[in-house]
Simulated scan of single mutants.
Amino acid sequence: MSEPAGVIHDIGYQRYTGARLGRGAVFGALYLHGVRTVFGFGRSAKAKIFPWLVVGIVTLVAAGATAVRSQIGEVVLTYAQFADNMSWLVIFFVAVAAPELVSRDLRSGVLPLYFSRPLPRSDYPLAKLLAMVTALWLLLGGPQLVMFLGAAFTTQDGMRGVWNELLDLLPGLLYAGLWAAVFASIGLLIASLTGKRAFAAGGIVAVFLMTTPIVGILSILPSTTVNELAFLASPSTLVNGVGTWALGELLVSEGGGPPIGDFGPVYALAAVVLVAACVTLLLARYRKVATR
Rank of each mutant, 00 (worst) to 15 (best):
1 M>W: 00
2 S>H: 01
4 P>K: 06
6 G>D: 10
8 I>D: 14
11 I>E: 13
15 R>D: 15
18 G>I: 06
19 A>N: 04
19 A>V: 12
21 L>I: 09
24 G>V: 11
28 G>H: 07
34 G>A: 08
37 T>N: 12
41 F>N: 13
44 S>R: 10
51 P>E: 14
52 W>Y: 03
52 W>A: 02
55 V>W: 08
58 V>A: 08
59 T>K: 01
60 L>K: 01
63 A>V: 15
66 T>E: 04
67 A>V: 13
68 V>C: 02
69 R>F: 01
69 R>W: 05
69 R>N: 08
70 S>A: 15
71 Q>C: 00
72 I>A: 05
73 G>T: 05
77 L>R: 04
79 Y>V: 00
81 Q>C: 07
82 F>Y: 10
85 N>F: 05
89 L>K: 03
91 I>P: 10
93 F>A: 14
94 V>G: 04
94 V>P: 05
95 A>D: 04
99 P>V: 02
100 E>D: 13
101 L>F: 08
104 R>E: 15
105 D>T: 08
113 L>R: 02
123 D>H: 05
125 P>F: 03
126 L>P: 04
128 K>G: 06
128 K>N: 09
129 L>F: 10
133 V>H: 01
133 V>E: 01
133 V>T: 11
142 G>L: 12
144 Q>G: 14
146 V>A: 10
147 M>N: 00
149 L>N: 00
150 G>C: 07
150 G>T: 01
150 G>V: 01
153 F>L: 13
155 T>S: 14
159 M>N: 08
159 M>E: 12
159 M>I: 11
160 R>I: 08
160 R>K: 03
162 V>Q: 06
162 V>D: 00
164 N>L: 10
168 D>W: 00
168 D>S: 15
171 P>V: 02
172 G>V: 00
175 Y>V: 01
175 Y>A: 09
177 G>P: 06
180 A>K: 01
181 A>F: 05
181 A>M: 11
182 V>T: 09
183 F>S: 13
185 S>N: 03
186 I>K: 06
186 I>P: 06
190 I>A: 09
190 I>C: 10
199 F>Q: 13
199 F>N: 11
207 V>D: 06
211 T>P: 02
211 T>E: 00
212 T>E: 14
215 V>P: 04
215 V>Y: 00
215 V>H: 01
217 I>P: 03
218 L>D: 12
220 I>R: 13
226 V>A: 13
226 V>M: 13
229 L>H: 09
234 S>N: 15
234 S>W: 03
234 S>H: 07
235 P>D: 08
237 T>L: 08
237 T>W: 05
237 T>P: 02
238 L>E: 08
238 L>N: 06
242 V>P: 03
243 G>L: 10
245 W>Y: 14
245 W>V: 04
246 A>P: 07
249 E>T: 14
252 V>S: 03
252 V>T: 09
254 E>R: 09
256 G>C: 03
256 G>V: 04
258 P>G: 08
262 D>T: 09
263 F>I: 07
265 P>L: 05
267 Y>D: 04
268 A>L: 15
269 L>P: 02
271 A>V: 13
273 V>K: 12
277 A>K: 04
277 A>V: 15
278 C>V: 03
280 T>D: 02
284 A>R: 15
285 R>W: 03
286 Y>C: 05
286 Y>N: 12
287 R>T: 00
287 R>G: 00
290 A>M: 10
291 T>G: 01
